[in-house]
Design a protein around this nucleic acid. Sequence first.
DNA 1: TAATATATTTAGATATGTCTAAAAAATTGT
DNA 2: ACAATTTTTTAGACATATCTAAATATATTA
Lengths: 218, 218
Amino acid sequence: MHSFTEENYLKTIFHLSKEDGSVVTTNGIAEVVNTRAASVTDMLKKLAEKKLINYIKYQGATLTESGKQTATEIIRKHRLWEVFLVEKLDFKWDEVHDIAEELEHINSPELIERLDKFLGYPKSDPHGDPIPDSNGKILQKPFVNLNKMKPGEQGKISGVSEHSAIFLQYLEKSGLTLGTLIKIIDVMEFDGSITLEINNDKTISISREVAKNLLAVI
Amino acid sequence: MHSFTEENYLKTIFHLSKEDGSVVTTNGIAEVVNTRAASVTDMLKKLAEKKLINYIKYQGATLTESGKQTATEIIRKHRLWEVFLVEKLDFKWDEVHDIAEELEHINSPELIERLDKFLGYPKSDPHGDPIPDSNGKILQKPFVNLNKMKPGEQGKISGVSEHSAIFLQYLEKSGLTLGTLIKIIDVMEFDGSITLEINNDKTISISREVAKNLLAVI
DNA sequence: TAATATATTTAGATATGTCTAAAAAATTGT
DNA sequence: ACAATTTTTTAGACATATCTAAATATATTA
Ligand SMILES: [Mn+2]
Ligand SMILES: [Mn+2]
Ligand SMILES: [Mn+2]
Ligand SMILES: [Mn+2]
């Protein structure tokens, strides 16, 4: 088995490689796992030793098939637990991430299969992120960043690319939760801020920064 | 916060002190946590340092109030998770202990309060063990060991003092699950084995060893 | 009580994961 | 192309939790 630390590194490498296999840097990892670059180098050597990553000195790392499999399993667990916390225990979507960070390391395939069943085989987590199936396959939804949409275009908010509690609470307060129907009314030339109509009802304005982190399905 | 290791030591000390505060020995702990006595000594020093135990060299250890509180919280979590696994995820009672050993270390009071509510505030776990309340209070049921019962006496099986999978599976197979009504028919002088009637229906015989580990409420 | 056996602690070592400071390689800018 | 900057790695140290072997304390028993 792998230690919690190893699992967190693998997950981080997976996310940093934009889930498509591009090379990840030492400093990039260091920032996410909140350690020094030297510690990352040590761990990269260890993960390479275990054939979980391909690692070339001074070049960076990519996950091997085995490493990708492991990373995907952890992400599957993380997202299923988040669904559990929100759907069954009535947590809000901004409260679940940290608890899921712990639960994702519980090691019992049987537990996860039963949890998946108990939850009704959900396809995505409370933040719209897809849940990998038990084979590690991830079904990507055709997300469009709100800041890429043009006036007149419509869609449904279906995901976020920033998961901080403050951001999620802001969305909640603004009525921009998952499932909300939106229509772009106007895009400001000056600062890229966007005016949009929510659920064919009221109109609000959001900054480009917020728009960048909102994902819609058209 | 305390490490997993520290938590496991505290839990072990609590159980070994028969939950009444008697002194626990180094070797006793070593056996349960599966380490060498020397490692236990190291950890006892550390726990004493943190004021979680009272420890006198060569004498043994007892939990302080703080240590008892921590141990009880872990046991509360362990048992609530076991209820979840059995009631919600359809695990059998002999399958849940190891998973609960991992889940009990998840650190989120909010999670546990919500889980407790979700489960309907259960009073005991799948093995009949009482679940401490959120203040750490444990309500002991008036259990009687089956080997202490006399011919003619009746009761309901309400707990086990041995939690191994083999034993629990044996009970399952023999129809000696929790809630089963029993009546002592006969006790063999020779080997202490007991003949009993189950649910006012069929009759079976169990060894004294088995009887010792079965708890009834009369 | 003195010898013997058992339990416990100490001393010193190892493995993991982290750190700082310094060295080395890669990248950037002129 | 080469100097300056940034990134990454190495070297050496530290904390935690473990181990074995040896020393010491306690308990047993003759
Ligand atoms: Mn999350
Ligand atoms: Mn999520
Ligand atoms: Mn258990
Ligand atoms: Mn139990």
